[in-house]
Design a protein around this nucleic acid. Sequence first.
DNA 1: GCCTCCAAAATTGTGCACAATCTGCGCGGT
DNA 2: ACCGCGCAGATTGTGCACAATTTTGGAGGC
Lengths: 250, 250
Amino acid sequence: MTTAATAKPARRTPRARTGTRASAESRIVRSIGEAIADRRLPPGTKLTEESLAEAFGVSRERVRKVLLLLAQRRVVTLIPNRGAFVAKPTPKEAREVFEARRVIERAIMERLERMPRPLPDDVLDKLRGHGALEDAAELAADRKAMIRLSGQFHLLLAEFAGNATLTGILADLIDRSSLAIAAFERRSSHTCSADDHRRLIAALIGNAPGEATALMIEHLDEVERQLDLEAKTDTRIDLKAIFADEHEPA
Amino acid sequence: MTTAATAKPARRTPRARTGTRASAESRIVRSIGEAIADRRLPPGTKLTEESLAEAFGVSRERVRKVLLLLAQRRVVTLIPNRGAFVAKPTPKEAREVFEARRVIERAIMERLERMPRPLPDDVLDKLRGHGALEDAAELAADRKAMIRLSGQFHLLLAEFAGNATLTGILADLIDRSSLAIAAFERRSSHTCSADDHRRLIAALIGNAPGEATALMIEHLDEVERQLDLEAKTDTRIDLKAIFADEHEPA
DNA sequence: GCCTCCAAAATTGTGCACAATCTGCGCGGT
DNA sequence: ACCGCGCAGATTGTGCACAATTTTGGAGGC
């Protein structure tokens, strides 16, 4: 069910080719991760092993392994004997994730600003190329593409800074940001505006000292500010509040 | 073999009590992690699933799961069809890990310095208590205790800063630092001197602005400086260089 | 009418057997 | 004497069957 149109019957081939094993796993991880990021799988969704196995055409233990990896990255929550759920961050956790991003991305921007000018051509090309992609996605109102590209933009800057370890940490934090946005986004909010990214690129190229760093901090603050991080500690309270006026007392 | 004195025959009880399942896993993770940190398991060591299973008295798939978790944390390396090995970081990776620690721990120290004075009593108590423990370990020349306590000290500061997400990230980086130290430590180096920690505690309590942060950065720099992070990119290159003058051309 | 309890169904957890792969070693050919 | 080949032995990878647990649905009692 759902959009599992890929459930081709090639599930159990007579000869198990193990060559595509590891890539299949990371493919599934990425696929689920993206689905969570662009809200096709909202926080709290139950992820039944059997369903996922059918959807991806793999065995259940493969899915189990993938879920363990995603749980390690705090993208899904594993409850013993209950199963896997798309993680539903608390407001506290959401704030922590954004604070962690500010810490790491400030350091990344400071390193980028310290790089000798002009920036290497390939860096400039990739920055401008990515900016064009974001513009196109915004013009086409392709929300899913915008979300994906927005995350990739921050990752791209991290890669230019040249610390793969920090980049890896940031990749996790970006995934969790997407989760936090999915959980706490207000109606009619515009995620990660491509305009901020445009200004960031310009500041980075122009290199007014400290400007790009300041813009990045302001950008992250703005994204966090667009969230509704009040109370909302429990789903049950939510349901009661939502249906309060539909429950006729007599 | 090895120190597997815990191989009690209770390996396969007729009724499998699943109650102690999750705790057993984290226990094994911690146990292996500590063994790696204090060099009982040096980088590159092969971790055979069967051996570990016997050593901990659990089934092989339990061990497999634990190894997957450790691999995710970059503490062990998983090579397909070859098995698990204690990770052997490259000099580049070691430098990256220390840079990442400087980024995160600087932020933590800045937050601690921004806390209102005097610091809460329980914080002061824990700081002083930990300092006493480190002193005792140093006095007793208990190297394993010193390594463990040193890591705990940095983690303690992170907890006081109140961001569990950053603390979790730092915990991973500390483990990888231990690995880097094990891989690149010079002979006759003194790890993480308890003296640095003493000064850090004093600066934190006294609160001369910026002093504690500066001490932390200097402390991390000093630990990294004690490592030998030259060349050594590959074992083969090493071998060629080492035996270059023993290869007679005629 | 509502609550409690129990059994069936669904889902997750785990041991086991076997398949696939890698490593080490000896044999035969050139 | 050296190189390739191939055959055990050991180790990892995976599907499957079954056990344990939770959830669901309904019957019975208060």
